[in-house]
């Protein structure tokens, strides 16, 4: 068997070292070794986006990243989004707009939406739908998700304005 590697990363702002086999995906290591189970596994082949995390601020499917590739990388998962007990505006908006039912797609959607708003604080509906096209939801029909992202964008803009 291939020998295990030590990988040094930063996860949610904190330095994290882990041991993994080359064949393990980042998703596996997050969930199984680091107990960060907020990141979900849907399809394991890059289609559903449930496993979305940010690497250097960019959304990627963690099921399509080898954990060894994360050496030196800065990773953000859903666990790093709330500040203590204070939910992120996107998390609040998802609750207020009822943008989730079973919830398995939600962590991935929040990560994708967070990256979108960081790049484009005032996206159009079409821009939101394209940015979230790599995140599938079998429950909501997407409208409420789009509305939640719009409302979070508005709320962030209002707080910056104040």
């Amino acid at each position: 068997m291939a020998k295990k590697r030590v990988v040094s990363t930063k996860i949610n702002g904190r330095p994290v070292e882990f041991l993994c086999e080359p064949r393990q995906t980042l998703l596996e290591v997050l969930r199984e070794s680091l107990d960060l189970i907020g990141t979900k596994e849907g399809c394991s082949n890059g289609n559903c986006g449930a496993c979305t995390v940010l690497i250097e601020g960019q959304p990627v499917d963690s099921c399509l990243v080898l954990a060894v590739e994360a050496e030196g990388a800065s990773i953000e998962t859903i666990e790093g989004v709330a500040k203590g007990s204070e939910l992120h505006p996107l998390q609040k908006a998802f609750l207020e707009e009822a943008a989730l039912q079973c919830g398995i797609c939600t962590p991935g959607l929040i990560m994708s939406a967070k990256a979108l708003l960081a790049k484009n604080p005032d996206p159009t509906e079409e821009e939101i739908r394209f940015a979230l096209a790599g995140n599938l939801c079998r429950c909501t029909g997407y409208d409420k998700i789009v509305r939640a992202v719009q409302s979070a964008a508005k709320c962030c803009a209002d707080t910056t304005a104040n």
């Binding site: 890059g46 986006g49 979305t52 690497i55 960019q58 959304p59 990627v60 499917d61 399509l64 990243v65 994708s112 990256a115 979108l116 394209f130 940015a131 979230l132 096209a133 790599g134 995140n135």
Partner: peptide, 9 residues
């Protein structure tokens, strides 16, 4: 090519 997550890689 795919969605944003795929395009980033």
């Amino acid at each position: 090519i795919g969605g944003i997550q795929v395009q980033n890689r």
